[in-house]
């Protein structure tokens, strides 16, 4: 009687999942396969169904801008993920220790995540513009030699995007880690207090290893953010100066529409998805394993 009810409940649950599964299959998987097919054709503005093998991929990897974009994405990804994790973690520790400004910090750092980057990116652009923003303000205060022109500097433009997106995303990391810390047995905190373990040692050697799963979750979320980085670049630098801050998604979008070359754009998308999978698979695997061990 009881098991039958559970069975029926399970069946209903599965039934409720069907629409979502269909959407995932048709829209995500289907569209991915369709893009793969297009990337093997000679399509320009319209999809055509011929077959040119890997010609588009060869073109892609002889394209200066594409290679440069991939390099940019790797640099950006490393800096962004590392900075978000460190800052998010420090913030979580501060709030966990109920430092007085914790409440304010939580608001300040979670708030950006709720805002569209197209809007905040514009504000960042103004702030970082040497003629309008921080540099000009500091100079007017009397420091006439002050320089902060990364936004218009070939070698530093990418870092301004790191700064702005870290500002946006570290609040998310903070929330995830905070939730993880709240889930840790109260006895451990108490034991640490009784033994008078310094806070930094407690967090670094005791708590952090216990937060492996939340860290992995945060990293996964951040990495998806890296792969789809687009709005911040468009809003802040448009890939410039020159091609200094170009990213793969912008290359794909440009070729999909303005440059009317959907086959090359699809090849780019396929490469991007593949590299994202290669980077994220080990993380998925590690997380699944640690979940199973916990269960």
């Amino acid at each position: 009687m009881n098991t039958r009810r559970i069975d029926r409940g399970l069946r209903r649950a599965h039934l409720a999942l069907v629409p979502m599964a269909l959407v995932a299959l048709v829209c995500y998987l289907g569209a991915t396969l369709w893009s793969l097919r297009i990337s093997l054709s000679s399509s320009r503005s319209f999809p055509v169904s011929d077959f040119v093998g890997l010609a588009q991929y060869r073109r892609l990897f002889s394209n200066e801008r594409w290679l440069h974009s991939l390099g940019n994405l790797a640099t950006y990804g490393l800096l962004f993920v590392a900075a978000c994790l460190v800052i998010g973690w420090l913030l979580a520790i501060l709030i966990e220790r109920e430092v007085r400004i914790g409440g304010a910090l939580r608001l300040v750092f979670l708030y950006p995540y709720a805002m569209s980057f197209v809007a905040t990116g514009l504000v960042w652009q103004w702030m970082l513009n040497p003629g309008l923003g921080i540099q000009e303000a500091v100079r007017r205060w009397g420091f006439s030699e002050f320089r902060f022109d990364w936004l218009v500097d070939q070698d530093h433009a990418l870092y301004t995007i790191v700064i702005a997106t870290v500002w946006q995303a570290s609040g998310l990391v903070m929330t995830i880690l905070l939730a993880g810390m709240r889930g840790i047995d109260a006895d451990i905190w108490r034991a640490a207090r009784i033994d008078a373990v310094p806070a930094w040692r407690l967090h670094l050697w005791v708590i952090a290893p216990m937060l492996a799963a939340p860290f992995a979750t945060a990293t996964l979320l951040l990495l998806t953010g890296v792969a789809k980085l687009y709005d911040a670049v468009v809003a802040m630098t448009q890939g410039g100066p020159g091609t200094a801050s170009e990213v793969p998604t912008k290359f794909i979008m440009d070729h999909l529409f303005g440059r009317a070359n959907i086959a090359l754009a699809s090849a780019g998308a396929a490469v991007l998805v593949l590299s994202a999978l290669i980077v994220m698979m080990p993380l998925f695997y590690a997380r699944a394993r640690s979940n199973r061990r916990n269960a």
Partner: peptide, 19 residues
């Protein structure tokens, strides 16, 4: 020029202008 060639040319020129 096709939109694609035109875009590739623009990429090269803007790169040269800035670097």
């Amino acid at each position: 020029l096709t939109p694609d060639q035109n875009g590739a040319l623009a990429d090269i020129l803007t790169d040269y202008w800035n670097r």
